[in-house]
Design a protein around this nucleic acid. Structure first.
Lengths: 330, 330
DNA sequence: CGCGTTTACGTCGTTCGTAACGATA
DNA sequence: TATCGTTACGAACGACGTAAACGCG
């Protein structure tokens, strides 16, 4: 058994059992990958994949178990490389995070800019998705960090650290009736208008909906998007009243007026998570502190050393979690 | 990085940083091992070992971390091989257990005999030590199973299953005053004689001592050994009264008489443990059931799937744990 | 001078890429 | 015929073992 064979195996799985595509991603020849897979199967005496004709058709039961073990192996291989790179003070490498649109568009740019100034030779990769997709990506080891909001429960292999809290804000065109209300806008006011807001997460973070239902109200959500910019576009078109994260409203933008909604909806928490068994590069510690200044290397290391998330939460309980209203200047 | 390099690395560590010894155990040439170590260090750009002259002198801090990761990798490699071997119905392989003298000498022979009849091509290896050494060996992945008595707490990486309970027995020469006592011998009777018994474990299993101290008594232990046979020899010599596991007294042996001590000392539990992240060969399941018939493959699999030992204990709570007084006929 | 490691070098097996072939839809 | 995988083959590489040199106690 060779590490290359396992690497090839995982590439095949990641590319939908397409050997040609796997070879392309591995920057090697297709027959080589094919042959190494055959050699691995021969050595183990086990079919890892089921075949339909010559093409790979599916993963066998044993194959799935083998793939799982191979993933562990390759993770530990990169851990070893990370340990070595850290010790050599190597300031190059790669770094991938998965996050939501709001973070990627409004919060991260200034952070990443500072980060890239400090580490110009680190290739940075941002994946985008829903909170669930994000957590899955980091749990599967496809990305180094996940930055998401909402519950994020049920990932025991992750260390999750609180980054900052934020509120929602109501966005309307400048001539909208809601701008005429002198007092604090209430949920009762909102239900009279069609709403445009984020796609709801399946379990957690539906604090948006429950805020209404707790008062016996039913919001009239006419449009949802994962993307605050899309929401804003539809609000400008007059399709409805927007409800977005306050970070997503940079300044008084063309045609749009923001209305404070902090009393209407519960406060949200953005957290960052990484696999507990991952060795972090030194630049990842610096990124964390750029993103959330209270996450010092010491805090992170002690959270990383904790046996599980319960202990992590005990550790971060004393921390003052920042509150973020608007984006800070780049 | 190659798997061989990691295998060589671990062999060097296991052989006390002696490359020649490592090469011997690996059945390869010494310069080959030396070169692969150098290549690994060069590729990582890190000194794994400190040198004194040309000889390896110690492991660096980073080296220790790398070794730990390499151990994980090699464990997962054998797990993959085990998965494959199981699927192929391969009835050959190797199997190592660590246990105490009493188990190895009095309990295991008949089990191993049956096992070897069923699996003549499995090479069987028994290591011997104290309960602590045993638990350490299996936790470090040096052996597949640990069979020990006493607490065995504090090994979260292990699945520990109860095998059977047993009592102690008092051994004396045939003409000893204790044999004249008509009623049940008591601890008060025992303190008047010099005692010969097992070496006490550091923390758990000192139920021997606490049995006395709970009654305000102080036993006069004049000799301890890890080995029931040694204890018996000294009892025959008249050095004192022996207290051993009841399994260690096969039948009315030459010169020795056994006195029931089950009411004097708390009952002991013998457990068997293996790493939670290990893939067990099919023959290991059969061994477990030969050793402890209540440990069926289904029980073992569900215990193995449990997230931690707390869950395992909940699972085995309903099981009827056998009691073992004398060894069962081979 | 013995022990242990490194260097040097020749041999052999393995991997890799190109090219051609085969099967499938 | 386009897509995908296997077979074939030659070139390059890398691992291994023997022999010899080196350093240290």
């Amino acid at each position: 058994m060779k590490l290359q064979q396992l690497r090839y195996l995982l590439a095949i799985v990641e590319n939908g059992l397409n050997i040609t595509a796997a070879a392309d991603r591995l920057f090697t020849s297709q027959p080589g990958v094919s042959k190494q897979l055959r050699l691995l199967e021969d050595e183990l005496g086990v079919q890892i994949f089921t075949r339909k004709g010559k093409s790979l058709d599916g993963i066998t039961e044993a194959g799935q178990e083998i793939v799982t073990r191979a993933e562990v192996i390759m993770r530990e291989v990169s851990n070893i490389k990370n340990i070595a790179s850290n010790l050599r003070d190597d300031r190059s490498g790669s770094f991938s995070i998965a996050t939501t649109h709001t973070q990627a568009r409004y919060v991260l740019p200034s952070v990443i800019q500072k980060f890239r100034q400090r580490f110009p030779n680190v290739s940075f990769n941002v994946h985008q998705g829903t909170s669930e997709q994000i957590a899955d990506l980091v749990a599967a080891g496809q990305v180094d960090f996940a930055i998401a909001s909402g519950s994020g429960q049920g990932f025991p292999e992750l260390v999750q650290l609180p980054c900052f809290e934020w509120d929602r804000v109501i966005l309307v065109p400048g001539d909208h009736p809601l701008t005429k209300i002198k007092a604090q806008v209430s949920l009762q006011d909102l239900v009279h208008f069609p709403l445009v807001t984020y796609v709801f997460s399946k379990d957690g973070e539906s604090s948006f909906e429950t805020a209404f239902t707790d008062q016996g109200l039913t919001p009239d959500v006419v449009f949802t998007a994962r993307d605050a910019d899309v929401i804003k576009t539809y609000v400008r078109m007059g399709m409805g009243v927007g409800v977005v994260a306050s970070m997503a409203h940079e300044q008084e933008e063309e045609e749009l007026v923001s209305i404070d909604a902090r009393t209407l909806f519960p406060r949200c928490l953005t957290w960052i998570g990484f696999r507990r068994d991952a060795v972090l590069r030194d630049y990842m510690f610096e990124f964390l502190q750029l993103f959330a200044p209270h996450l010092t290397p010491e805090i992170i290391r002690s959270a990383h050393a904790a046996p599980d998330q319960t202990h992590v939460e005990r550790l971060v309980n004393n921390l003052q979690i920042p509150f973020r209203s608007r984006i800070t200047a780049g």
